[in-house]
Design a protein around this nucleic acid. Structure first.
Length: 549
RNA sequence: GGCGGUAUCGUCUAGGGGUUAGGAUACGUGGUUCUCAGCCACGGGACCGGGGUUCGAAUCCCCGUACCGCUACCA
């Protein structure tokens, strides 16, 4: 163990000579696997890499870890690249933009890996191993049974061509394994963790090249980090224990080592295990998480879009884009998941993040993902949005609803602006505009909330009051919120009723809903003709219903 | 099992040998408004445990415990 947090932070500050002294070019990378989706945890890692590069005037590189798959890489990559674009995380080198170290796809770099393996072999740092998978497994299991540490016996190691020929005569094929040291320790200074050490003897003779001559992640990663001149490897904590084998490869190849920074991982909501796309079902048992999921699902349902459970998942970035979150809200929330500036600053503009970001202030413990707090950031962003911009982000959702064309007319745009202004901070997420669809629907088709209708219009005397209020609407001049407000209050006095006895009935009659923004604003936006038509329709429906009873 | 990492309100975090342990979010109560959302006020809520060092430990040291990761011809 090493000292206090304070000491570690101090040590970390001292242990960044590369940045202090040499005007080294900062180059960071994020290396997604083309899986077809962008994971929240991955974005956090990418964000920290991006911020670090931007902070230091460096370059941020996207490298594609597609060693495993052949087909549909482009298709599986698109959602990831789209996600980054949406978030405003741009890359200087990588897919689509290329760069001086191309190609940036691991599947296109096998020659480099093959050469690296050859060199390691030549230097005696790796060896051909002719054991079958079963034989290796048997050794490992035996060690486990006897409760001893597993170290490969190197029984089928071929160090000479004669050995190789003999094994091949038996019909065996070879993988290439690292010949790990069996004494000493691997020490390095992690920019987040401080000094860490691993005994070499505890490392396995990891396979770096399969029998089919394809290559494994650690080999590819070490080679690429060097080839791309990566200065800082900033990645999730799960790679901390993997670092020695990568250092072994890099040093064996004579590379200068990058600096390493291992980020705490993003943990499941309310838990401590790594956040996983596959555990959606489990997270949904948590009320807070479910609330955010259902809120989004409700918006999609209102849009009449099919919710595909596998893709509609708050663990994935596309969830937030679909529902209409502000990308800046997500980025801001993610920034604070594992990093902080001080004891109070929460809201950061993009340039402020870049200005203040530092690895020294990255936390060392896992942070659990809390979509409700993300929602709080979203609310603040949305409320801070200038009116015109708010109307703009909301408009596409009305288009998806089929209520606006691709090119809204000036009067349609005015109405959107009016509804957004009246709704104020009730619209926390752009997609929530679907709650105000009735302002864009025809008087004869917008739906009534059955429960609200029964309670507010179907109540004893409610229809009569509505009927008597109708002439007020017909006569009031001008037809604007303050005048309507005054007129309704006069009506209440004359009728000797309480305001609640009329206002809710009017609201349900003209909007179909029991809840909404200010009634007078709603009336003004709809206009006199629509209001009268809607009241008539409501009265007719009420009559039909009472007849049915 | 071995190795490595981590530990402050439910959650995200600040701080750190003497503090009323600060903020945010969530939650509760009251107020305000035509409903809802908000807003305002108030409130409850934390230093993993045990030893040691010290006048004094949440903070430094040691030992536990819990959790997480690695221990693949996955990335």
């Amino acid at each position: 163990m090493h000292g206090s947090l304070h000491n570690i932070r101090a040590a970390r500050r001292e242990s960044t000579p590369a940045l202090r002294r040499a005007p080294m070019t900062v180059r960071t990378r994020f290396a997604p696997s083309p899986t077809g989706y962008l994971h929240i945890g991955g974005v956090r890692t990418a964000l920290f890499n991006w911020l670090f590069a931007r902070r230091h005037g460096g370059r941020f590189i996207l490298r594609i870890d597609d060693t495993d798959r052949e087909r549909n890489v482009e298709a599986a990559l698109r959602p990831i690249l789209d996600g980054f674009r949406w978030l405003g995380i741009d890359w200087d080198e990588g897919p689509e933009v290329g760069g001086p170290y191309a190609p940036y796809y691991q599947s296109q770099r096998t020659e480099r890996y093959r050469a690296a393996v050859g060199e390691l072999l030549d230097r005696g740092l790796a060896y051909r191993d002719y054991a079958t998978a079963d034989e290796t497994t048997a050794e490992r299991e035996a060690a486990q049974r006897e409760k001893r540490r597993f170290i490969y016996s190197r029984r089928w190691m071929a160090e000479t061509d004669a050995d190789a020929a003999r094994f091949e005569g038996e019909g065996r094929t070879a993988v290439v394994r690292l010949k790990m040291p069996r004494e000493g320790a691997c020490r390095f200074d992690d920019l987040v963790r401080g000094p860490v050490a691993f005994d070499w003897a505890l490392e396995q003779d990891h396979v770096i090249q399969r029998a089919d001559c394809s290559h494994l992640y650690h080999l590819a990663s070490a080679v690429d980090d060097h080839d791309f001149a990566i200065s800082h490897v900033i990645r999730a904590e799960e790679h901390l224990s993997n670092t020695p084998r990568q250092i072994f490869i890099a040093e064996g190849l004579g590379y200068e080592l990058p600096r390493y920074a291992h980020l705490p991982y993003v943990a499941a909501p309310g838990g401590s295990e790594k956040l996983s796309k596959r555990k959606l079902g489990k997270y949904l048992t948590q009320p807070e998480f479910k609330k955010v999921h259902d809120h989004g699902a409700g918006i999609l349902a209102a849009l009449g879009e099919v919710v595909v459970p596998a893709r509609f998942n708050p663990v994935l970035v596309e969830f937030y884009r679909d529902v209409g979150y502000r990308p800046d809200a997500l980025v801001n929330y993610l920034l604070l998941l594992g990093w902080s500036l001080d004891d109070r600053t929460e809201d950061f503009a993009r340039n402020e993040m870049i200005e203040h970001f530092s690895l020294e202030r990255v936390n060392r413990s896992a942070a659990s993902f809390d979509p409700q707090k993300l929602m709080a950031f979203e609310e603040r962003r949305m409320n801070a949005l200038p009116a015109a911009e708010k109307a703009e982000v909301v408009t596409p959702y009305l288009g998806r609803l089929g209520l606006l064309g691709a090119e809204p007319t000036a009067s349609e745009r005015d109405r959107v602006a009016a509804v957004v202004a009246a709704a104020g901070d009730r619209i926390k997420v752009a997609g929530e505009i679907v709650r105000y669809a009735e302002f864009f629907q025809d008087d004869t088709v917008f739906p009534y909330d059955a429960k609200a209708f029964r309670k507010r219009v179907g109540a004893p005397g409610a229809a009569d009051r509505l009927r008597r209020f109708r002439p007020v609407l017909e006569a009031v001049e001008p037809f604007d919120a303050p005048t309507l407000d005054a007129a309704l209050h006069r009506f209440v006095e004359a009728e000797e009723i309480k305001i609640g006895q009329i206002i809710h009935a009017v609201r349900v009659a003209v909007t179909g809903k029991g809840v909404g923004f200010g009634l007078f604003e709603a009336l003004e936006i709809l206009g006199r003709a629509a209001c009268l038509a809607r009241i008539d329709r409501a009265l007719a429906v009420a009559e039909a219903q009472s007849d049915a009873d």
